[in-house]
Simulated assay, not measured.
Amino acid sequence: MRIPAFMLVAILGVFPLSPAAAQQQPPYWASIDEPEARMRTGPSTEYPTMWIYKREKLPIKILARYKAWRKVEDHEGTQGWMHARLLSASRTGLVLATNGKPVAMRALPDPDAKIVWRAEPGVVGSLTLCEKGWCLFDVTGRRGYISMSDIWGDEPLK
Rank of each mutant, 00 (worst) to 15 (best):
A10H: 02
I11Q: 01
L12M: 15
F15G: 03
F15T: 08
S18W: 06
P19A: 00
A20E: 09
Q23E: 10
Q24F: 05
Q25A: 02
P27D: 05
A30K: 00
S31R: 01
I32G: 10
D33V: 01
D33S: 06
D33G: 05
D33M: 00
P35L: 15
E36L: 15
M39G: 01
M39N: 00
G42R: 03
P43N: 15
S44Q: 09
P48V: 14
P48W: 10
T49N: 03
M50N: 10
I52W: 09
K54W: 15
E56T: 13
L58V: 15
L58A: 11
L58Y: 15
L58P: 13
K61Y: 06
I62Q: 06
A64S: 11
R65T: 14
R65S: 14
Y66I: 12
K67P: 09
W69N: 04
K71F: 06
K71H: 03
H75K: 11
H75T: 11
G77K: 05
Q79E: 09
G80Y: 04
G80H: 03
H83A: 14
A84T: 09
A84D: 07
L87S: 03
S90C: 11
T92D: 04
G93P: 10
G93A: 11
V95C: 03
L96I: 15
T98N: 12
K101G: 13
K101W: 03
P102R: 00
A104M: 00
